[in-house]
Amino acid sequence: MKNVHFLEFFALLAFASSFVSASDPDPLQDFCVALDDTNFNVLVNGKFCKNPKYVTADDFFYRGLNIPKPANNQVGSTVTTVNVDQIPGLNTLGISLVRIDYAPNGGQNPPHTHPRATEILFVQEGTLYVGFITSNPNNTLFSKILNPGDVFVFPIGLIHFQVNIGNTNAVAFAGLSSQNPGVITIANTVFGSDPPINPFTLARAFQLDLNVVKALQMKFSK
């Protein structure tokens, strides 16, 4: 009888594990270098696979992440992405990288989520105030002030942010657990959708005056 319960437990564990997996499926080959060529009919993770005999080291290489980018935009930050579109060899490997440059005195990577990835952030220069918020009903803020050499993790799918609280430029690098983590910037998504969300809906949801909502939609519209 004990053996029956033991087998039932492992059957349940196997069933549950099918729902608890990494963001990207594990590859079943050494690599699948992405190729935008419809003449190939093997599609893996949304990309065609390059014939392995034509694969080179350059398919796994990217240059230039050491170069600072200007952050003189509305939010005061610039994100340089290195995902499967920049390194075709990342296809099926479930990982990507970004560099973030922040302007002094409040430059920020505004509240956003990555629907397909956990993020681990490393601060190279400057001082950042960072945090993430848990899901309903608690909406608990976990935040920290980071200095050079510090690392912070943002769990998959949760809203998070970074703000440069110093008076000099800041630089951070982040690894993400997906070849294509996606990004949903909250303000842009809610107030800049195309077509726009009915402003009465947003006014009630955010407890804002209707005219304020319309002004925000004008600001964030593409």
Rank of each mutant, 00 (worst) to 15 (best):
N83M: 08
G175K: 02
F122V: 08
D194Y: 02
P137E: 14
Q162A: 15
G131D: 11
T127N: 13
G131F: 02
L146E: 01
P104K: 14
P104H: 12
S193V: 10
N139V: 05
G76V: 11
T168N: 08
T78W: 03
S96D: 13
V153K: 00
A174D: 01
T81C: 09
A187W: 02
P88W: 05
V153H: 00
L176H: 00
N164K: 07
R116Y: 12
Q124A: 12
G192P: 04
V75F: 06
F191G: 03
Y129P: 03
S77F: 11
H160M: 10
I133C: 00
V190M: 06
G175E: 00
T168G: 10
Y102D: 10
T168D: 12
L121G: 00
S177R: 02
Q124V: 11
N73P: 04
F142V: 13
G94F: 01
V171Q: 03
N72S: 14
S135E: 13
V130H: 10
S77T: 14
Q86Y: 09
N72P: 08
L141Y: 03
P70E: 15
F161Q: 07
I159S: 11
F191C: 01
T168V: 11
V190I: 15
N73A: 10
D85V: 09
F173W: 08
P88F: 05
F154N: 08
T168Y: 02
V82I: 14
T80H: 08
P70S: 15
V123G: 00
V130S: 03
P68F: 07
H112G: 09
Q179D: 13
S135N: 01
S178W: 02
R116V: 10
T134F: 01
N105T: 11
L97R: 05
G64K: 05
I67S: 12
I186V: 15
N167F: 11
P111S: 13
N139A: 08
A170Q: 12
A172E: 10
G157S: 13
V163T: 13
K144E: 07
G76M: 06
F152Y: 13
G182D: 07
T118L: 02
A103K: 12
K144R: 14
Q86N: 07
P104L: 09
L121A: 05
G64S: 09
V153S: 04
R116E: 09
V75M: 00
P181W: 03
N164F: 06
A103Y: 12
G157I: 07
F122L: 11
N72Y: 09
G157Q: 10
N180S: 15
G149Q: 06
N180M: 05
R63W: 12
S177V: 00
I100N: 01
Q179P: 07
E119I: 00
I67K: 15
Q179K: 08
T185V: 14
T81R: 13
P181I: 11
V84C: 10
E125L: 04
I87L: 05
N147C: 06
N66W: 08
T127D: 04
A172S: 15
P88D: 04
N147H: 15
N136Y: 15
T189E: 09
V171N: 01
L146A: 02
V183K: 04
G131K: 10
G106R: 07
N72H: 11
A71N: 14
L65N: 07
H160R: 06
A170C: 14
